[in-house]
Design a protein around this nucleic acid. Structure first.
Lengths: 309, 309
DNA sequence: GGCACGTTTTGTCCTGGACAAAAATTGACA
DNA sequence: TGTCAATTTTTGTCCAGGACAAAACGTGCC
């Protein structure tokens, strides 16, 4: 195999390629003795491609919760085994046959970067299931499968992008096809800073749309102050926030409290995301919605409380 | 009006917001005495919002060839005058008088967070202009107006989100309405790490769609290695990259060179973005497309070269 | 299982010196 | 006067090594 003979990389180049900061690269060298780059005529670090390759692997595995000190000490072969291992092991295969096929087909199309096939596959699924079941029975679980496959090294970051992109497209299509509702409560949707997953937001918007509610979406990562300002100006009744596992629990709760303090009492906060399933202490004035299935009940609760007539 | 009391920003936050590296921020402080951040209890820098604001303006002007030493010494008012003053004139001048109204109405709707109004306004504009003119004559210029208003503090971050969200929605609608084409060249679209603006990507996709080209989109921030891998697997003929002003010029060029070295010779790179208008040295094997108007010519050039029959 | 508490690991920030690449200036020469 | 090479100034990145807070881990308790 004619491996392209790329030149040795500067520390900036390695930062870009691997996502590891310059500071991190230097301190690993100091602490663990790896990477151990060459030096150019002026004493600046030059990383050979094989070290860059190993760093890229380490960077991926770091994202799965493995620890830096152990990874850098691991020989390259063992890293490769871990990164690509478990490749063909359907250990926890699908429970229900017909659901399994939807999931597996999606993964298969992703594996070959088949955008066209993926688009038509998802579109058919949406038409067959209808928007609500598409979101709750399919999309929510598919997200888990894809996230898992990525963390096992079976999907690259660009394949995950491909999935996200197409799924968002289908959801927007589905939402756009519904004639805008006018039922209460009016909801403003967004996420807090540090939370950049938009998919959850769109799934929530879909579930609200099928209840006849029209949402104002502010996109992702809106600072608390901006949220309260926009909510006031728009006169919405509820602020809906979506959470993945990306934010730390403590930080998430603190930001929620901040926002609660800034918003007028009469505006409710609905916080959505699987993470709330294991929540201990609730916050007054905030409703936690661990699964999208609960949304219809929350909505009817709200309507009962605010419009008893 | 109660001024928003945003918290002071850490040096990482400022790096993210302005695109100026930590090293640069520190050495400006040492050399020029600006920025002059506060310090927290542990001696770490805390940048007040007004300094961040000025840094953002400076960063913009730096991109136009102005010099750092002079800019940091310039008082804020003069910077604002320059930033809003001698921006490229044709960008502001509406092609036709009634188009100017399109811009002003959009800004007015944004000012009041009027999502419904904005959506219908943009939708009407799309229907009236058609996809191609909507992108080239309206969206491209509107983006400049909104970006400028944001850097001048006239729009909040959430208002910019609102704009981006709605504009993306319209573009997706427009693209989705076109029956998928099959003409050459086949294009894979994405952005490099650090470039998270998706709008440019969608505008490019729209322009390609009206030429009968179907794109594979990998979303934003794809590492160079993933791009070359996906391009090979998909067998595309062109990799299209979108650039805003977010990345520093030097970093952008270096990443482009890296990618060029990794991709097979026969796959072209098309680099899009207004920043290339003031490019000095070109890179062999990369076509720079400063304005979307140039795209049709580039496409016909490509077809002439690769299919002379 | 959840929570409060020390301990270890890990990444980011700090200072201040050095220097290369780019830009501006100077000077020689056609 | 215009061009080009050489020199100076400007500017951003790199380096070393110390410090420390936040995260991860482990342990004991309710």
């Amino acid at each position: 195999m004619p491996t392209p003979q790329l030149p040795d990389a500067s520390i900036s180049a390695v930062e870009r390629e691997t996502g590891l900061s310059k500071d991190t690269l230097r301190i690993w060298e100091r602490r663990y003795g790896f990477p151990l780059p060459l030096r150019d005529a002026h004493g600046e670090r030059l990383y050979p491609q094989d070290q860059v390759h190993k760093l890229r692997l380490i960077s991926r595995l770091l994202g799965r919760g493995l620890r830096a000190g152990q990874l850098v000490a691991t020989p390259l072969e063992a890293l490769i085994a871990r990164a690509s291992g478990d490749e063909d092991k359907p250990a926890h295969a699908a429970a229900r046959p017909e659901d399994g096929e939807l999931f597996d087909t999606t993964l298969r199309l992703l594996a070959t970067y088949d955008e066209t096939g993926l688009r038509s596959h998802l579109s058919l699924a949406l038409q067959r299931l209808g928007l609500q079941r598409f979101v709750i029975d399919f999309a929510a679980r598919m997200n888990l499968r894809v996230g898992e496959a990525w963390s096992l090294g079976q999907l690259s970051i660009s394949q995950e992008h491909l999935y996200t992109e197409q799924m968002q497209h289908q959801l927007r299509q589905g939402i756009g096809a519904i004639y805008p509702g006018v039922r209460h409560p009016s909801v403003m949707l967004t996420t807090l800073p540090g939370e950049e997953h938009q998919l959850g937001l769109l799934m929530a918007q879909a579930c609200l749309a099928v209840e006849g509610i029209r949402c104002v979406s502010l996109g992702v990562q809106t600072p608390a102050w901006d949220i309260s300002e926009a909510a006031r100006q728009q006169g919405v009744e509820v602020v809906g926030l979506s959470f993945s596992e990306a934010l730390r629990q403590k930080a998430a709760l603190e930001m929620l409290k901040d926002l609660r303090a800034q918003l007028p009492q009469h505006i409710e906060i609905w916080a959505g995301g699987a993470r709330w399933a294991r929540l201990r202490r609730r916050i007054p004035g905030v409703r936690f919605i661990a699964r999208l299935e609960e949304l219809p009940r929350v909505i009817s609760d709200y309507r009962a409380e605010h419009d008893p007539a």
